[in-house]
Design a protein around this nucleic acid. Structure first.
Ligand code: MN
Ligand code: MN
Ligand code: ZN
Ligand code: ZN
Lengths: 144, 144
DNA sequence: AAAAAATTTGTAATGATTACAAATTTAGAG
DNA sequence: CTCTAAATTTGTAATCATTACAAATTTTTT
C-alpha cells in the first residue's frame, strides 16, 4: 500500500483514499477494467465513493502517465495500471483483454513523423479467445 | 462509380444508392470520417438519407471487411475505406487522423497467440500535429 | 480557529450509438 | 404486368458511457 502512495507521488499525484484505492485496484487486477467495473469493485469497501470520482481520478492518472487508457473497445474505455510498452488482445466475443508481450520494434515504430509529435504508441489485436471461438463455430454449424 | 459497385459486390454487399454513396465517400475522402460526418456530407445530395442508415451501412461494411472501424478516438468511431495494412496517427488536439505507412513487421506481429485467434491488427500513434503542438506550447508560455 | 484551496460527491446534461417498428424499395413468382 | 415476400431504409425513442456543474466535504495554509 505504501508502494502505491509512492507511485502516485512519483507521478505528481497527491495521494488520497480514493486515488490510492483506484490505483491499487488497477495495479493488482490485470483485467484492464472499465471505470464502471472499478467503481463496482470498490464501492462495497468505500460506500461514499462516487462514480464521478472514478472517472475524474482515472483521467488524472492518464494525464500524469500513471495509467493507460485503452480505446480498443468501442463500447467503453478500459484502463491499465501497467504503463510499460506492451500490446493488447481484445476478444470480440466476450470483451476480455489480454496483455501481449511485444519484441523490441523500436526500429520499426516511429517516434517522429513529418510534423507530427508522437506521445503514445498502441498495438491492438482483435479476434476471439478459445472459448468464444468454439461458441462461434458451434453457432455456424447450427445454421448449416 | 462502377468501381464502387464492383467493390461492394466483391465483398458480398448488395449495392444500393445509399451504400454506393457511403462507400464512394469513404474511398474518396482519406480523412477517416465519423458516421456523423458522412451523414452531413451526403445529406444535401440525398435528402432522404437517415443517420440510422449510415450507421447500419458502416456496420455492414466492417462485417464484410469492406471498411475498417478505427477505435483510436474515445469520443466516436472513425471509418476507413482503405483496408490495406497501415498505421494511424491521431492528433489529441484537433482529432485529425493521418495514415502512416508501416514497414513490414510480419516477423514481429503475431498472427496467432496461444489460444487466441487474431482477426485484426491495429497500430495507432497519438500525439499532436504541427498546428496543435504550436498552440499547446503557446498556452504553456502564457501560463509561465 | 478561520479562510482558502483541493477533492469528492450527486445530479443533470450530453452525445454517440442502437432498438424497433413503420414505410419504402426491390426481387421473384405467376 | 401484378401481387407478394424479402430486403432495405427511415424516423423516433431508448440506452448508456461520459462529462458538466455546483454543492458538500476534506485538506492545507494563514
Ligand atoms: Mn495491459
Ligand atoms: Mn487509414
Ligand atoms: Zn472471448
Ligand atoms: Zn491537431
Amino acid at each position: 500500500m505504501e508502494q502505491i502512495d509512492k507511485y502516485l507521488r512519483e507521478h505528481d499525484i497527491k495521494p488520497s483514499l480514493q486515488r490510492i484505492a483506484i490505483m491499487e485496484y488497477l495495479q493488482s487486477h490485470k483485467t484492464h477494467p472499465t471505470a464502471d467495473e472499478i467503481f463496482n469493485a470498490l464501492y462495497p469497501s468505500i460506500p461514499t465513493l462516487s462514480k464521478t470520482t472514478v472517472y475524474n481520478t482515472l483521467k488524472i492518472f492518464v494525464e500524469h502517465n500513471a495509467a493507460l487508457c485503452l480505446t480498443i473497445d468501442d463500447k467503453t474505455a478500459h484502463f491499465d495500471g501497467d504503463t510499460s510498452f506492451h500490446a493488447h488482445f481484445f476478444c470480440l466475443g466476450c470483451g476480455c483483454i489480454y496483455d501481449i508481450p511485444i519484441a523490441d520494434i523500436s526500429n520499426v515504430l516511429k517516434t517522429e513523423i513529418d510534423d507530427l509529435t508522437i506521445t503514445e504508441t498502441h498495438i491492438y489485436y482483435k479476434g476471439y479467445c478459445k472459448k468464444c471461438l468454439e461458441e462461434k463455430l458451434k453457432k455456424q454449424k447450427e445454421i448449416n
